[in-house]
Design a protein around this nucleic acid. Structure first.
Lengths: 140, 140
DNA sequence: GATGCAGTTGAGAAGCATTTGCAAGTAGAG
DNA sequence: CTCTACTTGCAAATGCTTCTCAACTGCATC
């Protein structure tokens, strides 16, 4: 048997099975996304993806990101600084610390906070669809 | 002695003491803001303020909101739906629940979550400048 | 109350991130 | 290999917000 397919390949298969066409451009973007360890914005993704496929336009980057978000493959974050930033949807949820001086983004997760959130929403008669928790911080 | 000044008057005095000019336009906006029980956006504030002073331009609304934010008089929120929304800075901090169906915004506060946030930031060597916690919910 | 000037305003142009219209190109089912 | 619906690149359009600039005005000072 073959070795398991790489991250990008696995994603493309999953997309095709959901009836999403995997074009040359989408594959380039998926590759770039899966190799990114940070939280790039659309312009940065465009820059990186052009190294893989130089014909890829910024409009297509946006269109593809919208598709991938709908498919649950990527997450879109709108921090207070500038435009939206993206990352491949991690099965394990996390929140973000934003360093207000350097712009650096750090991930964290705290189950007690998650639980308190659910509890608060429930008390108001709501259930959480998703949430956003960002700590804008400065190094001590 | 006179009765204490109303909310708007108190704000204008505080601003003047901080060297901020209180113009006819700014007063109109302060009045509208202090009477708002919701979280209006700039266009809505413009609409409401024109009932007080019909010469007020949208550009001035934005300029004034920036000034008032710097002075700590209003808070600016960027929810996932559309443009920024504003509210008079409440001395007591609170977070928001956004009803994803109706767009309605509800305020809440939980000191245990606040404490956990500080703790998490501290563990990473950070101190929180400010934070953002929004629960996007649906009625049960 | 009159004066001076730095800060403020209205109107429209500009800026920025993102979206869209359209004609040409292409994935992938049959 | 063919066909068709979905995608793409390009440029123009969008929506929110900020800027430019000449005219105006708080308000500290006389």
């Amino acid at each position: 048997m073959r070795k398991p397919a790489d991250k990008t390949e696995r994603m493309t298969h999953a997309l095709r099975e959901n009836g999403v066409r995997v074009t040359r451009q989408r594959e380039a973007l998926l590759r770039v996304l899966s190799e990114a360890g940070d939280h790039p914005d659309a312009a940065e993704l465009h820059r990186r993806a052009q190294a893989v496929d130089d014909s890829l336009s910024l409009a297509t980057v946006y269109r593809t990101l919208t598709v991938l978000e709908r498919e649950g493959v990527v997450h879109r974050h709108s921090f207070e600084t500038g435009g939206a930033r993206f990352e491949v949807a991690d099965p394990s949820h996390h929140d973000h610390i934003v360093d207000v001086d350097s712009g650096e983004i750090i991930e964290f997760h705290n189950e007690r906070i998650e639980e308190l959130q659910r509890q608060i929403a429930a008390e108001m008669g709501y259930e959480i669809v998703h949430h956003r928790l960002e700590l804008y911080c400065r190094k001590k």
